[in-house]
Amino acid sequence: MLGEGIIKGLAETARNFFGSYVNKERLTTVQYPEERLPRIEATRDFPFLVYDGDDWEKGLRCVACQICEKECPPKCIYIEKSKDKKPDAVGKPQNYPAKFDIDVSVCMSCQICVEVCPFDAIKMDVQFELSSDDRFGGLLLTKDKLAKSNEYYHEIHPTEAAGVDAALAEDREKEKEKQRLAAAAAAAAAAAKAAAAAAAPPTTVAATKDGAGSGGAAKEEAK
């Protein structure tokens, strides 16, 4: 019958229309600013820097190795390495980023910086309402805007953060163990040297130099 198809279609629309009053699944609209969908855990948009502890400047995990800067496909990361070194979580002296800027107007949220970071220092944020009336400055995130605490990271990506924390704790334990052994060895060597030559003041200097050397080697490896 001519018109049968049209009637069938209209019946379908009617079913959907009236269904939307009784069936939640047929009414999928969300009134956005007031009402929000539950956040999906894996969601990502722009990167941020993780810090441990309370002080963001002291606790930044980033050691300014510049791998992410090199690997970033649209080259939106800008890092300036510090001249001096600061002790990191296990007390090893490390560089830190004197400047760490991400231009989020260029960033394409690909997550490659997170994948290549050997220090778990950069992670993906979920903050998407970044509109600003300052077109260039407002979208250039500097270090202080990027730094966010590990607790925040746990809040937005709980499963991933727990995994990262466990791996980091293990690494740090190993590193501490290595340091302890190195220190013990250095002390033993120093004692032996002291025993051999009664007056030998520069031994302590040598020990610290050793420590710095191993730190540098570890960083080279990471690169």
Partner: peptide, 25 residues
């Protein structure tokens, strides 16, 4: 001025214009 390759130069210029690099921090 937000073109991709220029981002580094622009930021350097931005900080140079601000004076001492770490003063703001």
């Amino acid at each position: 001025p937000t073109a991709h390759d220029e981002v580094l130069k622009r930021m350097q210029a931005h900080y140079a214009a601000q004076g001492a690099p770490s003063a703001s921090e």
